[in-house]
């Protein structure tokens, strides 16, 4: 049940990319943090929820060929470090593309996808993944 509690507790920030901003130094954190690691005590009571845009760019990435069983239908899959426009960096899967289309610096946006299935009878876990922005059509 510990796993289920965690999924439930994290659903707000995983579903909607809700982060925290420290109103003392204006740094944005994702996942949310209760205390700003820079301002410590000065950030108490100054951490506010912030809706992130889900827009950012690929900082670096890796192509995973040795996939765990649950990801075998998606093999090879791409895991990237994404720098969000608001500042924070997060790790997420890049979907709907092939490894040869991925490169650092490419613009991406968040999408809502299924993250994990707990067998055929367990809970379905949803959250953010990223898709490369379509270049504007000429």
């Amino acid at each position: 049940m510990g796993e289920l509690s965690r999924i439930w507790r994290e659903s707000d920030h995983r579903y909607r990319l809700i982060g925290h901003v420290c109103r003392n130094c204006n740094t944005v954190y994702f996942p949310p943090r209760d205390i700003c690691p820079t301002c410590h005590r000065d950030s108490v009571g100054k951490m506010e929820e912030i809706q992130l845009s889900g827009k950012g760019s690929i900082f670096s990435y890796t192509v995973v060929h040795d996939a765990p069983p649950a990801f075998r239908r998606q093999r090879p899959y791409i895991i990237a470090l994404i720098k969000l426009d608001e500042g924070p960096t997060l790790t997420a899967q890049i979907v709907d593309t092939k490894p040869e289309n991925v490169s650092s610096g490419k613009r991406v946006h968040a999408v809502f996808r299924k993250i994990r299935e707990d067998g055929s009878g367990g809970i379905l876990q949803y959250g953010y993944k990223f898709v490369i922005d379509e270049p504007p059509k000429a």
Binding site: Q74, V111, R113, K114, L124, K129
Partner: peptide, 8 residues
């Protein structure tokens, strides 16, 4: 895609 369903 394998990670898409009616919810997504």
């Amino acid at each position: 895609a394998p990670d898409e369903d009616v919810a997504t």
